[in-house]
Design a binder for these strands. Structure first.
Lengths: 141, 141
DNA sequence: TTATAACAGGATCAAAATGATCCTAAAGGT
DNA sequence: ACCTTTAGGATCATTTTGATCCTGTTATAA
């Protein structure tokens, strides 16, 4: 359980490649897809999400492509994962009153809340910069 | 992301109900399903898994049903969740060499490993007994 | 030994999520 | 104008999830 989907893997691989480029260098989606070994059309969708959320900046036309919107050291793994997989919520009920089964407080929720907090903390503490320095992009995720 | 499925929710609700019965009391699957508000046929499958893994003991025929195989204080939330959702593996690659993309070590894996360890620790520390004392069964999960 | 109660387990099925692709539009450069 | 490159909607196949059904097996009791 709790598996990262392909989309999440691709997202991490793709953004790590960007982080490994010289700062300011524009990369084509085709280039990133090839380097990260990800289906290009799928990766394009992922980078659209990145752009909307302000993780990367996109530009169109000749000479266009993608660049990180911030230094890689200021982009966390949590941001990348949540950009494509949605917020980290181990149990639906963390969201609202949907699980207020009957009255009173539910201990199970406390546990999932704890899980959520821990995972968020871990992923918040890891930046793309750190991951990018690990090895070349194809090793990631 | 990382959402518990219905199956996981049902599993927790169902076993909490069992834990709330007088020790040794046999419960029918129909009774558990009604109390936990879970489709009976679905819950039956879940309890089959429990029985195979030795979390509960099942008996057939008149007077048959399910009982906890151990005291509720000796059954962890991790066991229950993993019984129906499989092992806690946030990233497929934790399993084997499938993600040895190229050579060398991958930092992303270290992070997922850390997540896995934390989640396992949290769920290992919670017993069904604790959950069962929270409130009546319908409040759980 | 027959009838009945209850779980075991395989097969099936609909709905949702995932993974992936395609096409047209829009924006930017030459 | 024309080419390049991303944006975004639509589509589609596959897998997973959630659920049900049917038959078999085990056990009890009359």
């Amino acid at each position: 359980m709790m598996e990262l989907t392909r989309k999440g893997e691709y997202a991490i691989r793709g953004i790590i490649y960007l982080a490994q480029q010289p700062p300011g260098r524009v990369s084509l989606i085709s280039e990133i897809a090839a380097a990260a070994d990800v289906p290009q059309t799928f990766l394009a969708k992922i980078f659209q999400s990145f752009a909307k959320l302000g993780l990367v900046v996109s530009s169109r036309g000749t000479g266009g492509g993608f660049v990180l919107a911030r230094p890689a050291s200021a982009i966390t793994m949590r941001e990348v994962v949540e950009a494509v997989e949605g917020p980290i919520l181990p149990n639906r009920c963390l969201l609202g009153a949907s699980c207020e089964r009957g009255t009173g407080h539910c201990l199970v929720h406390d546990v999932w809340r704890q899980v959520q907090t821990e995972v968020v903390n871990i992923l918040d503490a890891v930046t793309i910069d750190t991951l990018a320095r690990g090895r070349d992009g194809r090793d990631a995720a």
